[in-house]
């Protein structure tokens, strides 16, 4: 295989991986705050694309307004979901809450089907124009957008966690919720904000990728598996590890393609099982569990 072909695969891997990274961040943030795996995470991705399409095509808003608007709306939905579905049962076993999120994901998908129909809905690229050429490989403009968005998101999250009062409260909750409460932190509010943030991250991923793939009511579950696999690969601990897990999963998928492109979608499940069997704490964490 030629270098340019390899490069092309790597570019595709890093593009998909960036999307998985955003999903994995969502899983990680909710898990850190609640010990719950939120399987509705993929639906936020779907809804992000849907609301952007709605704002752009139905309400004819400019694309650069539609996109952030969709993210905000989905963040609100995430917080509403936590308030209505999770908080009333917050003292239940994590497993019961996980089942609630699975149910929530079905509800979101079927509501989306009623609201938006069952067709695939497109969105134009954020900036139109030909692909960039780099050492014989082509990079779509939208891919550059995706990378940029991931970089800005990670920088923003890093700032949030290390420099802000809210971020410090979130980290305190991750480490010891009872102690956080003794500091005067309203932990219920932190959990709600965590869901909102995770939903926003899912929506960002969904909006960024819709110009390339279009969106449909039933794409949430598939992407949730990939984001979950990436999050597990990263160890469900630190945000940076989640991003690394996402990028790695994207690259592994592309590495399989030359052998059999049909295998690509099995990779995430394979990685998921392999990590859970062989290294349940994730790739980047020492066996002793410590968060952040």
């Amino acid at each position: 295989m030629e270098t340019s072909e390899l490069l092309q695969l790597a570019i595709a891997g890093l593009k998909n991986g960036s999307i998985y990274a955003l999903l994995a961040l969502g899983f990680t943030i909710v898990y850190a705050a609640t010990n719950v795996i939120n399987f509705a995470q993929g639906e936020f991705y779907m809804l992000g694309g849907m609301f952007a399409v709605l704002a752009f095509t139905q309400f004819e808003l400019p694309l650069l307004v539609s996109v952030p608007l969709a993210v905000l709306v989905v963040a609100g939905i995430g917080m509403l979901f936590e308030t209505l579905a999770i908080r009333p049962r917050k003292d239940a076993e994590p497993m019961a809450l996980i089942i609630i999120t699975v149910g929530g994901s079905l509800v979101f998908a079927s509501l989306a089907r009623h609201a938006f129909g069952s067709d695939a809905l497109p969105l134009p690229e954020f900036t139109a124009g030909p692909s960039f050429l780099f050492a014989g490989a082509a990079i779509e403009r939208q891919t550059v957008w995706i990378w940029g968005i991931v970089l800005v998101t990670v920088a923003g999250l890093t700032f949030l966690y290390s420099k802000t009062r809210l971020g410090r409260a979130m980290r305190a909750c991750m480490q010891n919720r009872e102690a956080a409460r003794l500091m005067g932190i309203d932990t219920a509010r932190v959990v709600m904000i965590s869901f909102g943030l995770a939903a926003a991250l899912g929506a960002v991923a969904g909006v960024a990728v819709t110009p390339l793939t279009s969106t449909r009511f039933d794409i949430g579950a598939g992407i949730a598996v990939k984001g979950f696999a990436a999050a597990i690969l990263g160890g469900l601990g630190s945000p940076l590890a989640a991003v690394a897990g996402g990028l790695l999963l994207g690259l592994i998928e592309q590495a399989v393609i030359p052998f059999s492109s049909a295998l690509k979608d099995v990779v995430a499940l394979g990685v998921l099982l392999a990590v859970l069997f062989l290294r349940p704490q994730g790739l980047f964490r020492r066996a002793r569990r410590e968060k952040m």
Binding site: R168, A172, Q175, N176, A179, A180, M183, G184, E290, M292
Partner: peptide, 16 residues
């Protein structure tokens, strides 16, 4: 908060 510094623990004490 074991993973946080002494300073950060104190800062959290003054959260309100």
């Amino acid at each position: 908060f074991g993973a946080m510094s002494v300073d950060e623990n104190l800062t959290l004490g003054a959260y309100l």
